[in-house]
């Protein structure tokens, strides 16, 4: 696991965001065990307090859960996963719209462009 942190957003939020992306993209499966707070701090080279904070946020958001003294796991709740996907996609679309708005591009053209670029990128990845 490797995250390049920017210096202006809270580190814990960047960690949470990273986890959200991993879960939404399926790289973390539902119910999968995740590193302990200490291991995470060590892997990401962050302060253990920050790792703790990130886990607390995720736990409160229902993204992860901990039973007793067992290691924390990714949620098993499909609904959470769906919500997460929606949240991430909507967030991305919001940012896209905000970015293209000043250019005043017609919606059809934008959709066409998105389709073309998206397929082009997926093709490259394959």
């Amino acid at each position: 696991m490797k995250i390049t942190f920017n210096k202006r957003d809270p580190v814990y939020i960047q960690v949470v965001q990273h986890f959200k992306e991993q879960i939404a993209s399926g790289k973390y499966e539902l119910g999968q065990e995740i590193p302990s707070r200490r291991e995470l701090a060590n892997q990401l080279k962050i302060n253990p307090n920050t790792a703790q904070r990130a886990y607390k946020e995720m736990e409160e958001a229902g993204l992860i859960f901990t039973e007793g003294n067992n290691p924390s796991r990714i949620t098993k709740d499909e609904q959470v996963l769906r919500n997460l996907r929606t949240e991430l996609i909507e967030g991305a679309v919001d940012r896209l719209i905000a970015a293209v708005e000043p250019v005043n591009i017609p919606i059809d053209e934008l959709i066409g462009l998105i389709q073309a670029k998206y397929e082009e990128q997926r093709g490259e990845q394959r």
Partner: peptide
């Protein structure tokens, strides 16, 4: 980032923050 400093209170001095910015509270 390890258990070596976990739960302890740490004060460090530096004139060069860049490398450790996201390590400190």
């Amino acid at each position: 980032t390890s258990h070596l400093v976990e739960e302890r209170g740490v004060i460090i001095t530096t004139h060069e923050i860049n490398d450790i910015e996201h390590l400190i509270d």
